[in-house]
Design a protein around this nucleic acid. Structure first.
Lengths: 206, 206
DNA sequence: TTTCTTTATGTCATTCTTGACATATAGATT
DNA sequence: AATCTATATGTCAAGAATGACATAAAGAAA
């Protein structure tokens, strides 16, 4: 089974959902650490059903199109449980912003500072949203957060991961923005920064 | 151009490299935040050359097979510079370990604690390696680290990002391992943990 | 002598992922 | 009346990524 399959099973282990619902969750809660569009989700649900990991029943709705509600089977829960206990393959982190930072030395200082300040601001916004959810969880879910066998505990755990992630990114962006901003070539002389020079020497060993 | 293309250009903007060298870099320095196998790199280099972003020359070697050494063109550097200054698309983070944590409530406490302790240990190992490199950079590259127009400054910046990433992950793994470990159903009674119960109630709203 | 490892370059099939296309119901808005 | 949004489910083509397959030269080890 694919990782996406386990992501979907992780949702269905909590509650029965339609494909549409799964798609919504993928942009919300689970979206902290996984993502997929509906064009991936519907075929994957079909594959999960083929494999006997989920079943569906059609729910007729007035005032809305009918929907297929999926739920995890025993086999599905077993597979999920087994997968969750195995160490994941160590794949390289792919972060486009860090990749841009790797070439930031080519970019004008002010422009780069603007980019990383702005990105830092976004991380801080996301962090604030997460902290809000965290506060809400710690109040409303207090009883479950000490019980690792409760689904809510697991949701809380992933949120904490998201918080540390956003915090680290925000901190790094702030640091980088400041580092590229203050230190233009003039070193305190010219009031405005001027882009120049190309920087084409010193190309060894970075 | 693809993101991989910019990753390769980011390397070639520093020094001329063969496809093999690029592949090695992708498992090392750049591997902090991007990754690719040689089966992706060779075709991408060909595409970059077709687009006029890189050129190559064949270097004949005694005692080694001949190699194609690629270097970035002016057009390549310009494209890289422009790309580096644009905000990246905000894609969902895909982290398989966090996804496993999302289903950790299904897993036996001791088993889960073992998993996250072990993963935490790996993050700490990686962190230690990064910190070592950092110390080395701060000594050997001291003159460049205050100059954002130096390639080494950019390399250092990405390393700092990696350090914060590993630190956050290590901290989270430690916390999670402890949380799932101490709090087994018995709460201090039974010496050994026993898996049981299935946990199939309380399935709403996580 | 054979095998193994490192350097060195490529292809190919499959899978994963994205974005566009496609359809349909119903309420709300213009 | 026409359009827009939200719900609801799907397909398809193209691109990205992985892992296996394939070749080759030279030194080092068995």
């Amino acid at each position: 089974m694919t990782t996406l399959g386990y992501a979907i099973l992780g949702l269905l282990a909590r509650e029965a959902l339609s494909g549409y619902d799964v798609t919504q969750r993928m942009k919300g809660r689970v979206g902290f650490f996984w993502g997929a569009g509906h064009s991936q989700i519907y075929p994957e649900l079909a594959r999960l059903e083929e494999g006997g990991f989920v079943t569906h029943s059609v729910v007729e709705q007035r005032e809305r199109p009918d929907k297929k509600v999926f739920e995890a089977t025993e086999a599905g829960l077993d597979a999920l449980k087994e997968w969750a206990a195995q160490p994941p393959p160590r794949k390289p982190t792919k972060d486009e912003l860090t990749l841009k930072a790797y070439s930031v030395w080519l970019v004008d200082g002010e422009e780069a500072a603007r980019l990383f300040r702005e990105e830092g601001r976004r991380y801080e916004e996301q962090l604030a949203r997460y902290e809000e959810i965290r506060g809400w969880m710690e109040e409303e879910w207090a009883d479950d957060l000490g019980r690792p066998e409760a689904p809510r505990f697991a949701s809380y755990a992933t949120l904490r991961r998201g918080i540390l992630y956003e915090k680290g990114n925000a901190e790094w962006c702030r640091w980088l923005a400041e580092a590229v901003e203050g230190k233009q070539e003039g070193s305190g002389k010219s009031g405005k920064s001027k882009k120049k020079g190309k920087g084409k020497k010193g190309k060894k060993g970075a």
